[in-house]
Write a protein that binds this DNA or RNA. Structure first.
Lengths: 202, 202
DNA sequence: AAAAATATTGAACATCGTTCAAATTAAAGG
DNA sequence: CCTTTAATTTGAACGATGTTCAATATTTTT
C-alpha cells in the first residue's frame, strides 16, 4: 500500500496527469483507463477518484494541457515573422497546426472526442484557454481591418481558424476523406487562406 | 426463442438497422448497445453478431444511411434555385447542412465519432457516398471556373465544404466554442462564403 | 422418421467506470 | 509513549459494455 506521505495531494495530481499523458502517447486514448493509471503510479484505482471526481475531470485537465501546447505552437515567433507577409505567416501557422495534429495525434484527437466532457458545462479556465487560441491569428489579421471593423476582424479570425481546423480534422480522422494525397492537406489550407484573404482585401 | 422463419436474413438485417436508427434517435449513440437492440427486436444479443460481424459493421451501415440523407438535403432543389445566384444557393446549402446537423444530431455526430470504424479501411461503397457529398456544391461552383480549371474547382469545393463543416462541428459540439450566440453560426457561414467567393472572383 | 444443416440462444469472459466500507497511515491530545 | 481522532489508501464489488461459442432449437434434406 502506498504511504500517504509519499506525495502531497498536489504532487499526486501532477503525477496522475503526467502519467496519463504518457499513457495516451504510448497506447492512445483507448489505453487510458483508471486501472492502467493506477498500476503505473503504484496506487489503487480508487485513489484517482479521490483526486479527480471522475475520469472526465482528468480528461479536462489533460485537454487543458493540450490547449496550452497548441497555443505555444500557434504563438511561436515563426508564425509572426516580421520579414514575411501576414498571409505567409498565416500559412505557416496553419501548417504548424496541422503538424501539431500529426505529432500529438492522440492528444489532439482527445480535444474533439465526443465522449469526453460531453454534457458538462466546461470550466471557465478551459474556455479561456480556448479563447486564447484565436489570438495569434487575430493579430495577423490586424493589418486588414481598421479599428472600426474590430468586430469583423474577430469574426474573420474565428471563421478562418474553424475552416483550417475543419480541413485538418476531416483529413486527419479520415472520416470524410477530403484529400487522397497526403501532403495535399497543407496545399488546401494554402488555397483557403489565399482565397479567403483575397476576398477580404477586395 | 425467436423462430428462424420469422424473418429472412435480409429482413432481419433491415430490422436491426431500423431499430438501431430509432434507438439512436431516442437515446443517442450511447444508448445503442447490442443488448438494447436485441431486446427491442425480440432476439438475443448473439443474433446481431450473426448478421453483422461486429457493432462496427452495424455502425458503418447506419452511417451510410446518414450520408444518404445528408446527400438528399444538399441536393435538394432549394439549394440549386435557378432564380437565385450561385452564392445565395451556397448559403442555403450551408444552412441546410447546419440544420441537418441539428435535426439529426446523434446520427450526424456518429459520422465523426472517433470510436466508430477507427482502424478499418472503410468499404468502397462508403467512400463513394462521401465522394457524392461534394457534388452539389461542385455544381454551384461551375460558373466560376472554366473547363481548364476543373481541378481547381474540385479543390475549391472540398475546401469550402470542409470549412463549413469545421464551423458547424465546432459550433455543434461546443468543444471549441466558436460563437456565443446561437444563430451566429449561420452568419459565420455566410461570411465565409461571401469572402471565399469574393476571393475566387478576384 | 432420421439425419444433416442452419439459426438462435444466453451464459461466460474480459474489461470498463465507479463506489465505499474496511484497512492503513499520519496527526493530535494526554 | 500511548490513545484517540482524522485523513488517506485500498480493492472487492456492482452494473455495465462488446464479444464468443457450446448448446439448444428449428428447418431442410435424405
Amino acid at each position: 500500500m502506498a504511504r500517504r506521505s509519499d506525495h502531497t495531494r498536489e504532487e499526486l495530481k501532477d503525477l496522475i496527469v503526467n502519467t496519463s499523458w504518457e499513457i495516451i502517447d504510448e497506447k492512445g486514448f483507448e489505453g487510458l483507463t483508471a486501472r492502467n493509471i493506477a498500476k503505473e503510479i503504484g496506487y489503487a484505482p480508487g485513489t484517482i477518484y479521490n483526486l479527480f471526481g471522475s475520469l472526465d475531470d482528468l480528461y479536462l485537465e489533460l485537454n487543458g494541457r493540450t490547449l496550452d501546447l497548441l497555443y505555444d505552437v500557434l504563438s511561436a515567433p515563426a508564425c509572426a515573422d516580421p520579414k514575411k507577409t501576414p498571409i505567409q505567416n498565416m500559412k505557416t501557422m496553419a501548417l504548424h497546426y496541422m503538424n501539431f495534429a500529426q505529432d500529438h495525434r492522440p492528444h489532439w484527437l482527445m480535444l474533439f472526442n465526443l465522449r469526453v466532457t460531453q454534457n458538462r458545462s466546461d470550466a471557465q479556465w478551459y474556455h479561456e484557454k480556448v479563447e486564447k487560441l484565436f489570438e495569434p491569428l487575430s493579430k495577423l489579421l490586424e493589418p486588414f481591418f481598421d479599428k472600426a471593423r474590430n468586430k469583423e476582424k474577430q469574426l474573420a479570425a474565428r471563421v478562418l481558424w474553424s475552416s483550417v481546423h475543419g480541413l485538418c480534422f476531416l483529413q486527419e480522422t479520415g472520416k470524410i476523406s477530403v484529400v487522397s494525397n497526403d501532403k495535399a492537406a497543407s496545399k488546401m489550407a494554402d488555397y483557403l487562406i489565399d482565397t479567403f484573404m483575397a476576398g477580404i482585401e477586395k
